[in-house]
Design a binder for these strands. Structure first.
Lengths: 130, 130
DNA sequence: GTACATGCAAACTATTTGCATGCAG
DNA sequence: CTGCATGCAAATAGTTTGCATGTAC
């Protein structure tokens, strides 16, 4: 459960902390390489998986790849992603969360995990399209 | 937009209609093969993708693979999947749908697509676990 | 000193694509 | 007959893994 404090792991954690958007393992690896941080792609994958398991990263399964983002442990939220420009905004999740629990309870289920992904058009792109 | 009426396409549609759970392209291919239906894996992928685009199949992105299920076009709904036994129940989505539109509107977004995936424990598996 | 983390390359999985052939319309 | 659908095999993309080496503790 306690992971070792290696240069690579630290570099990943720091970069994730300063990255507000979701990012793929490959992008992360590219960025680290471009700033001179020598690190193997496999290590990036291993570390991201480990951090996600520890709950330190949010995971988003996009089209064909897995995206990670520094997790704001304070509050749980979801995102709306603009399919045109990629702009992302957060959405508080309290209401849905409650709805889910209730809906599940109706069928005798207990909710243990969930993902909500919302795509749409942001104001700018709506205007651009008109 | 109008697809041709081939034996393979028909076979896939029929099998999907009689399959209540979500199923992967590979499983579908296996089943068709096992009942003597000769069909290429690539065709299964192509047809499933096409049917999903036409809105005739629901798509669920599971762990590392994509699952498809015959779509009940009547009403839009989501699912709760038991992580233990795989049992699946449907959940009407009206409320969440509305919540999403509102939440999006607050940020100037228009919702164009969404996925909601809920995992949990069904009554049976809760009991088995206790 | 010892076990766990890393790097590299090879392996793997799910899916996609190029191209020649078949069959629906 | 004409073009889209198919089958096969090879290609691809993202991710995982085996193994030798490095290093945190």
């Amino acid at each position: 459960m306690t992971s070792r404090n290696t240069v690579q792991r630290t570099a990943i954690i720091e970069l994730m902390k300063s990255t507000p958007e979701f990012i793929s393992a490959q992008e992360l690896h590219d960025q680290l390489s471009s700033i001179g941080q020598k690190i193997g792609l496999a290590t990036v994958y291993r570390t991201l998986t480990s951090l996600a398991n520890e709950g330190r990263l949010d995971v988003l399964r996009s089209d064909s790849e897995t995206l990670y983002r520094h997790c704001d442990t304070e509050r749980h939220h979801h995102h709306i992603v603009c399919t045109q420009c990629g702009r992302t905004v957060e959405v508080a999740a309290d209401q849905v969360e409650k709805w889910m629990q209730e809906a599940a309870a109706n069928s005798g289920f207990i909710v243990t995990a969930h993902t909500i992904e919302i795509w749409g058009l942001c104001a700018q792109c709506q205007a651009a399209q008109a």
